[in-house]
Computed example of a mutant assay.
Amino acid sequence: MSRDRDPFERALEAIRIKLRSGEGLQGRALAINLLARELGVSQTPVREALAWLAGEGLVVRGHAGYVGRTFDGASLAELYRLNLAHVLAALSADLRAATPGLAGQGTRPPWPLTDSADPNATFDVLVAQAADRTLLASLRRTREPLSPFVAAEAPLIGDQEATMEALRLTYPDPAGLRRAARAFYRRRVHAASMLFSATLERLQI
């Protein structure tokens, strides 16, 4: 029998999954005692996990305990803009590396980059290819809060298939990938208020 994972790590991952699904969204309480009972651990690792997530900006600590983040259309649009900035920064580094006379040019892996049909996963890989750990970590911090809203993208925007085709046709050209990234994220910026409302309706908040 394998050894049980560290209670803190189990609690941290379990709460992350809950946040990705929308639990706690819009300032709803994340009760330590209820989470501990549900996860089968003591309250201490749950409390430590919530403190860790508060440090990442994924939850907020208030007078009565921890609650999820509160969003609106404007703040959601800003998160999409930040995601775009990370992708463009990664691809700008790629352009510099591809410039004759500059060091760092490498060979890209073949297409497809992931088994996922979600462009978000492909953009994550493109950022990872920049081999900049700080940039990748920063992307993940801005990507994670978007998780509850991603489910609304397909029915409201419906551009996943077209975006994947655009990425396939332009890969590995950084300039073409930048154009595809701008178009993908700008559609989400413009639709942010609708994505926000649809997500709250789906979660019955």
Rank of each mutant, 00 (worst) to 15 (best):
P110A: 10
T107A: 12
R81D: 03
R69L: 13
L53P: 08
L35E: 05
T107P: 00
D94G: 06
D94E: 14
R61V: 11
W52D: 14
V87H: 04
L126G: 04
G24I: 02
L95P: 04
T70A: 14
G106A: 13
W52R: 15
L102V: 07
R133W: 08
R47C: 14
E23C: 07
A77G: 13
S21V: 09
L82S: 07
G55L: 03
L34N: 07
P119N: 05
R20V: 10
R81N: 03
R69A: 11
L30Q: 02
A64H: 12
D72P: 06
G24C: 08
S42L: 07
A89G: 13
Q43W: 02
L19Q: 01
A97R: 15
T122H: 12
G73V: 08
R69V: 10
Q43T: 14
A74E: 13
D115I: 01
H63S: 15
A54W: 09
I32C: 08
G40V: 06
S92A: 14
V67Q: 07
T99A: 08
A90M: 03
G27I: 11
R28H: 13
A49G: 05
A89H: 11
L91H: 00
Y80E: 10
G27W: 05
A54D: 12
A93L: 14
A54K: 12
H63W: 12
L79F: 06
L91I: 02
G40D: 08
S75P: 08
P45E: 11
L126F: 03
G27L: 10
A29R: 14
V59G: 11
L95E: 15
S116W: 01
D118S: 10
L30D: 04
D94C: 10
F71E: 06
P112S: 01
V127D: 03
L113A: 02
L88E: 04
G57S: 09
F71R: 06
G68C: 04
S75H: 05
G55F: 10
Q26E: 13
L102Q: 09
R28W: 04
L35N: 07
S21A: 15
A97N: 09
A89R: 13
A93R: 14
Y66N: 04
D72W: 05
P110G: 09
A137F: 10
L126T: 00
V67F: 02
R37H: 11
W52L: 13
V60I: 11
L58A: 14
R69H: 07
K18P: 07
D124V: 15
G65M: 02
V60D: 09
Q105T: 03
A85Y: 04
A97Y: 02
G73E: 02
L82R: 12
L88A: 00
A31E: 14
G73N: 03
A98I: 12
R108G: 04
L136K: 12
R96M: 12
T114E: 01
S75A: 04
N33C: 14
A121H: 02
T114P: 05
D115W: 00
L102R: 12
